Computed example of a mutant assay.
Amino acid sequence: MKKRKIPMRKDLLSNQMMPKKELVRIVKNKENVVAIDPTGKAAGRGAYVALDPAAVKAAKGKKLIDAAFGITIEPTFYDDLFAYVDHQKARQELFGK
C-alpha cells in the first residue's frame, strides 16, 4: 500500500511546519473581513495557526495576525480565536486526533 503524503503548512505564530490537520485556518476576504475558517475552504488569503492557546494570547499582544494580513484587526477577533483554539485543543485531548 502506498503511503499518503501529509499536507504541511507553516504556523504563523511559531514559523514551524506542521501537519495541516493540527492547525486552524484564518482567512481574509476581499472586503478585508478576517474570520476563522474551520473548513479550510473559504475564499480569500489564508494563514494557519496552531492549536496552542498560549501562542494565541501572545499573538494578541504582538498583533502578529494584523501584520500578516496588513490590516488592523479588532481585539475581539483574538478573543474569539482564543476561545476556538482552546475548545479545539480540549476536543483533541478528549477524543484524540
Rank of each mutant, 00 (worst) to 15 (best):
K2L: 07
K2R: 09
K3S: 09
K3D: 04
I6R: 09
P7K: 05
P7L: 11
P7R: 06
K10A: 04
L12M: 12
L12D: 02
L13E: 05
N15C: 12
N15F: 15
Q16T: 15
Q16G: 08
M17T: 15
P19E: 08
K20Q: 13
E22A: 10
E22S: 13
E22Y: 12
L23C: 10
V24K: 15
R25E: 02
R25L: 02
I26A: 04
K28P: 03
K28T: 04
E31M: 11
E31W: 08
E31N: 13
V33L: 09
V34S: 04
V34I: 14
A35R: 10
D37P: 08
P38C: 03
T39E: 15
G40R: 04
K41I: 00
K41T: 07
A42E: 12
A42Q: 10
A43N: 04
G44R: 03
G44N: 05
G44S: 00
G44D: 01
G44F: 01
R45N: 00
G46A: 00
G46H: 00
A47F: 02
Y48G: 01
V49A: 04
V49K: 07
D52V: 03
P53E: 01
P53T: 03
A55T: 06
V56C: 00
K57L: 10
A59K: 03
G61S: 13
K63E: 10
K63T: 09
L64T: 05
I65P: 08
I65Y: 11
I65N: 05
D66F: 06
A67D: 05
A67R: 12
A68H: 06
A68L: 07
F69H: 01
G70K: 04
G70M: 07
I71Q: 07
T72N: 13
I73N: 02
E74T: 05
P75Q: 06
P75N: 08
T76S: 07
T76K: 11
T76H: 08
T76E: 11
F77L: 12
F77P: 11
F77D: 09
Y78P: 01
Y78V: 04
D79W: 00
D80A: 15
D80G: 13
A83E: 14
Y84G: 09
V85T: 01
V85W: 04
D86Q: 13
H87P: 06
K89D: 06
A90I: 08
R91K: 14
Q92C: 02
E93L: 13
L94D: 09
